[in-house]
Structure formats: C-alpha cells, structure tokens
Deep mutational scan, measured.
Amino acid sequence: IEKFKLLAEKVEEIVAKNARAEIDYSDAPDEFRDPLMDTLMTDPVRLPSGTVMDRSIILRHLLNSPTDPFNRQMLTESMLEPVPELKEQIQAWMREKQSSDH
C-alpha cells in the first residue's frame, strides 16, 4: 500500500509539472495564426496569391488538392516561399510568452 501511495504522489507531481509546462498560445496575434486552421504558425510560407500559411497545413492540403485553398489556382510545394522574418517574430513572441508564464 505504501508503494501505491508513493506512486500516486509521483503521478500527481508529474501531472502538476506538465500542467505548468503547457503554455497557452490562444492569444496569438492574428498575423501569427494560420488563416485556414486558426492555429499558431511555426513555419510560415507565402503562397503566390500573397496569403501566408503554416507550411504543415498547406502541405497537408496539397496532398488532397494541388491548389491554393483560397483561389483554387494551381499550387505546388516548390511555389511556397518561406517567410523567415515572420517566423522569427513568432518565435520571439513564443519565447516572451514562455518567460512570462514561468
């Protein structure tokens, strides 16, 4: 029984630690959010139409349809242009958020 109590305490400790580690990014500025999924972008790319999306989301879309989801023009992965300035701004915002939450 004592071992179970210790195990339960350890589990509670881990759960509390994980809860502290989770950071809420739901208040991200609109320009940091993917327009299709409304999630925080981690690897922004510009489509030929000028729309900026997260790379993982547009690549997932391209698996089903080789088109720009906003104007239905033909689109391939090679046409995606990285946006390193925005990526750095997002990373800086995330770092600031992490340091203010801890």
Rank of each mutant, 00 (worst) to 15 (best):
G50S: 05
S99T: 13
I23L: 12
A28G: 13
F4M: 05
E12G: 07
D101P: 09
S26K: 15
I14K: 13
E22D: 08
T42V: 05
K97Q: 13
P66R: 08
A21T: 09
K97E: 14
M74T: 13
E12S: 12
T39P: 00
K3R: 06
K3N: 13
W93L: 03
N64L: 03
D43N: 08
F32L: 05
E9L: 05
S100D: 15
T76S: 08
A21E: 13
R95K: 01
K97R: 14
K3D: 00
A19M: 14
I57F: 14
N71I: 01
M74V: 08
D43S: 02
E9V: 07
T76R: 05
E85D: 10
R60C: 01
L62Q: 00
M79V: 03
E96N: 07
Q91K: 10
E2M: 11
L40Q: 02
D24H: 08
D30N: 07
K10M: 15
R95T: 13
P48R: 02
V11L: 08
E81M: 06
E81Q: 09
D27S: 13
D101G: 13
K97V: 06
I90L: 06
P69F: 00
F4C: 09
R33I: 04
R60P: 00
A16V: 09
S49A: 15
I23S: 09
I1P: 00
A8S: 14
D43G: 00
S78N: 09
S100T: 07
E77G: 07
E13R: 04
T76V: 07
T42Y: 03
M53T: 15
M79I: 04
N71K: 00
M94F: 15
N18H: 09
R55H: 05
H61Q: 01
T76N: 08
D27H: 05
D27F: 14
S78W: 00
V11Q: 12
M41I: 07
H102D: 14
E9D: 11
S26T: 12
V52I: 12
R20H: 14
F32Y: 10
D101C: 06
S56C: 08
L40I: 09
E77A: 05
K3S: 04
E96L: 08
A16P: 08
